[in-house]
Amino acid sequence: MDALNIQNLTKTYATGTRALKGVDLRVKSGDFFGLLGANGAGKTTIIGIMTSLVKKTSGKAEIFGYDLDKDLNKAKKEVGVVPQEFNFSIWEKVIDIIVAQGGYFGVPRSVAMDRAEEILNALDLWSKKDQTARTLSGGMKRRLMIARALIHHPKLLFLDEPTAGVDVELRHGMWKYLNNLNANGTTIFLTTHYLEEAEELCRDVAIIKEGEIVRNDSVKNLIRSLEKQTYILTVETSKGRKPVKGFDVRVIDDATLEVDLHKDQTMSLLIHEFHENGYVVLDVRPKGNRLEQLFLNILQNK
């Protein structure tokens, strides 16, 4: 069964802005799915509609087979949401925010307390449970929203830019936590501006542009579809070495080269050719993020 099934979804806001222009999207149960797009592309509108915070103009949307027009409350029961903006009362204690959210989903207080302890410990927030939300740092607030979204054990978790403004160490910790969550069966629907995050976490991604899905495929296939990928090579020295035929090579400095690897070329071939021409290759790394290259190509209609 699909965790999410959207057919011809449109949304026109009262201002006349057409945020969604007939979106079709399916997310398999158990998937880690990424929705990528520029600001204003329609990502948050899709999450808003799926979580009933935004009214759709037309189209059909289902969550685990529950039609949002007919079985909204059944669908809601399966969903947890971490919004882009902080949306909790800053005057309430961390534990109260989480336990109350459980209550809204029918989780008894005693059960919610136990679950809150488990989740807050996993997210390294248990020591802050009696602090009011306003005293938390930005990263802690993000984790609080994740904890709150999980208190009723949702089968589908919407994450709208969950790591925005979070430091690198914390972000990696959150990735690990989300990966575990997904491995344990929770379907995750992620929007993010960090393309490395999508490449790291997601199995499937869709790219939305001006309210329309322009690509929808597995991350593997999308990366494979890149015409070329650029790599940075660190070599012992490039002085006095012959040019390497068949590759576009740009010299950055004596020890650093930028090389384009086309779709029909392999990394083994690249290393071999450089070796044959007398280079000692010390390190190879991708220039930027591969998904980012694809994303930019699509947005710029390349």
Binding site: T51, S52, L53, N73, K74, K76, K77, V79, V81, P83, E85, F86, N87, F88, S89, I90, I97, A100, Q101, Y104, F105, G106, R148
Partner: peptide, 18 residues
């Protein structure tokens, strides 16, 4: 109104609470 202003009314709106 405070819940609307701070957006924490969304905690209720996304839940199945009738």
């Amino acid at each position: 109104f405070g819940s609307k202003f701070q957006k924490n009314i969304e905690e209720l709106l996304v839940s199945p609470t009738p």
